[in-house]
């Protein structure tokens, strides 16, 4: 969920921008030159994946995959997500320029956490069922965590957003389950077909 322009208070916007700048700096520092094309093309792939709509009952949701971005990229997830959001702001006017910092933070921070939680498991475990479970957890938890961060940004701007926050959170529970399932299947696929990308 991207928060639009004009909604959040200046202090939240500023705080988000500062933390995102730090995240981007860490990401850039961790990124070696020979990995530039890989990170760029993976970012393109995640951008395309975010245009895919997955049916949920009568409605549909687009993929987020920030858990998977985290597991594949670590701190560099900040770069991938920042660029994706920047492009969406320029091309589609989703999210926005002033909210770029806080929106990146809300999505990329859970990615980095997932990397710390699960990266070791993913590279070491070879049992397909365990991989699926780890994938499910990383997809599920990253979306829930993002939704919590979005809720907090709204809540600290204006306490009256409470009803809106409850609705947002409840919408994100089915989305998180689907994200979990899909991330689980993707990890299983990668493990079966090209396990070296998960090392």
């Amino acid at each position: 969920m991207h928060i639009s322009e004009g909604v959040l208070s200046p202090s939240i916007l500023l705080g988000g921008a500062v933390v995102t700048l730090i995240g981007l700096a860490i990401g850039l520092k961790n990124l070696k030159e020979d990995k530039l094309p890989e990170v760029a093309i993976l970012s393109s792939t995640f951008f395309v994946a975010s245009l895919i709509h997955i049916p949920i009952g009568p409605s549909s949701a687009h993929l987020i995959l920030n858990g998977l971005v985290g597991i594949l990229l670590g701190w560099v997830a900040f770069l991938a997500i920042f660029l994706g959001l920047l492009l969406q702001a320029i091309l589609f006017q989703f999210g926005g320029i002033t909210t770029l910092g806080i929106n990146t933070l809300n999505m990329a921070f859970p990615s980095v956490i997932m990397w710390y939680f699960f990266k070791n498991f993913v590279s070491k475990i070879n049992n397909i069922i365990f991989i699926f479970i780890v994938g499910f957890l990383s997809g599920f938890l990253s979306v829930i965590f993002s939704a919590i961060l979005v809720s907090l940004s709204l809540y600290f701007t204006q306490k009256s957003f409470f009803a809106l926050i409850i609705t947002l959170m409840s919408i994100h529970i089915p989305i998180a389950i689907i994200e979990g399932l899909i991330t689980g299947f993707i990890l299983v696929y990668l493990k079966k077909v090209k396990p070296e990308v998960l090392l």
């Binding site: 094309p37 890989e38 760029a40 093309i41 993976l42 393109s44 792939t45 395309v48 994946a49 895919i52 997955i54 049916p55 993929l63 995959l65 594949l72 689907i178 399932l181 899909i182 991330t183 689980g184 299947f185 993707i186 696929y189 990668l190 077909v193 090209k194 990308v197």
Partner: peptide
């Protein structure tokens, strides 16, 4: 089945992307 199919599509895209980036 739908979720698995979409996941495998994304997985295939990712693998192609790794190869392409090399």
């Amino acid at each position: 089945h739908t979720y698995k199919t979409y996941a495998y599509i994304v997985g295939a895209l990712l693998i192609k992307s790794f190869q392409r980036s090399t």
